[in-house]
Design a protein around this nucleic acid. Structure first.
Length: 292
DNA sequence: GAGATTTTTCCTGTTT
DNA sequence: TAAACAGGAAAAATCT
C-alpha cells in the first residue's frame, strides 16, 4: 500500500519551465560553511525527534525518530530492533514496561527504557509542563540552523550548498544512511571506535544521496525558500513547490544536465522501495511517507 | 572482477 | 486530451 504523501511530490501548481538558476531566490542561494561538525550534528540529531515535546505526546513518527536516534547514539544495528513492533504513538510507548522493552529489543531494551525514562522524568519536571497543546506540526522546528555558527558564503564561491550534508557524510556519528549496515555491537565502545571510520565509506555513489539532498533542503527552509515545504512534518509529508528547480539543482550536483523532475521523482520512489523491510527509518520520515 | 547499492533512463499504464 | 503520477525493467555509476 502506498500512502503517498497526499501530494507531497506534486509539482502541478508550479510552472516548471524556468531554469534552476533563474528560480533560485537570492535568499536561497547562499550556502554554508560550518566549522564545528560535532556540534552541528549533535544539535541536528537532537532535533530529529521533538525534544521539546513530552514523549507521551509523540506521534508514531516521532517514536520512530527517537528509536532511530537511539540506534545511532548507541551504534546499534538497526536490524536488531523490530521497528514494526513499535508502530505506536508516544502514549503507548510510555505505557511500556522495562520488560516490554527487553522482550521486544532484547539486550537493547534497558538502553531504550532508560532513555525514555530520562526523557519522561528528569527533563520534563516543571520545566515544560504538559505539552499537548504544544504539539502542532507547524511548531516542530527544523532548525538545525539556530545553533549553528555557520558563515554564509557566496553561492558562486562554493557550488555546493549542501555543505551540511556532506559534512554529515564525513564525520557525523548520526549518519542515517550508514546505520542500517552497522554490525551489531558486542561492545558499544569498541564498536564505536571501530565502525565510525568504516561508516563513512559506506556506499555513497556520486557523493551525496538523494534523500540527503532532499533532507537538507527541508532542514534549511529559511535558506531555501520556495523549493520544498513541509505539509505536515509530524507525518513526514512535504510538497515540491519548484519541482524542476529542485531537479536541476540535483542534476547540477550530480553533473547531470539532463536531470528532470520526472527522473528525480522516480529516484525518490526507488528510495522508498529500497527498504521494504524497514519502512520506518529516518529517511522515510523526511522523504514523503510511503509504507508497504 | 563480482556483487551490492543507488540512481538514471525509458517506458507503459493510471489518475486527475 | 494533457499533464502528473506510479511503477517495471534495465543500465550506469560507484563502492566493498
Amino acid at each position: 500500500m502506498v500512502l503517498h504523501s497526499g501530494c507531497s511530490m506534486s509539482a502541478s501548481t508550479i510552472p516548471a519551465s524556468v531554469s534552476a538558476e533563474n528560480q533560485l531566490p537570492a535568499s536561497w542561494s547562499p550556502h554554508y560553511n560550518c566549522p564545528d561538525v560535532s556540534m552541528m550534528t549533535s544539535g541536528y540529531a537532537g532535533r530529529l525527534w521533538s525534544q521539546d515535546l513530552h514523549p507521551q505526546y509523540w506521534s508514531k513518527y516521532q517514536v520512530w525518530e527517537w528509536l532511530q536516534q537511539m540506534l545511532d547514539m548507541h551504534q546499534i544495528d538497526a536490524t536488531a530492533i523490530p521497528f514494526n513492533n513499535f508502530d505506536l504513538d508516544g502514549r503507548q510507548l510510555c505505557s511500556m514496561t522495562y520488560q516490554d522493552f527487553t522482550r521486544l529489543t532484547g539486550s537493547f531494551g534497558p538502553i531504550l527504557y532508560q532513555s525514555l525514562t530520562d526523557l519522561s522524568q528528569s527533563k520534563w519536571t516543571g520545566q515544560y509542563g504538559s505539552s499537548a497543546d504544544m504539539f502542532t506540526s507547524g511548531d516542530i522546528k527544523t532548525e538545525l540552523d539556530a545553533d549553528l555558527p555557520c558563515t554564509i558564503l557566496s553561492f558562486k564561491e562554493e557550488p555546493s550548498f549542501y555543505a551540511t550534508s556532506e559534512l554529515f557524510d564525513i564525520k557525523t556519528p548520526f549518519q542515517p544512511s550508514t546505520m542500517m549496515t552497522s554490525p551489531a555491537p558486542s561492545s558499544p565502545d569498541t564498536k564505536r571506535s571501530h565502525s565510525r571510520s568504516n561508516q563513512v565509506k559506506k556506499h555513497n555513489p556520486r557523493g551525496t544521496h538523494l534523500w540527503e539532498f532532499i533532507r537538507d533542503i527541508l532542514l534549511n527552509p529559511e535558506r531555501n525558500p520556495g523549493l520544498i515545504k513541509w505539509e505536515d512534518r509530524s507525518e513526514g509529508v512535504f510538497r515540491f513547490l519548484k519541482s524542476e528547480a529542485v531537479a536541476q539543482l540535483w542534476g547540477k550536483k550530480k553533473n547531470n544536465s539532463s536531470m528532470t523532475y520526472e527522473k528525480l521523482s522516480r529516484a525518490m520512489r526507488c528510495i522508498n522501495r529500497s527498504w521494504p523491510c524497514f519502512p520506518y527509518c529516518y529517511r522515510y520520515t523526511l522523504l514523503s511517507v510511503v509504507q508497504y
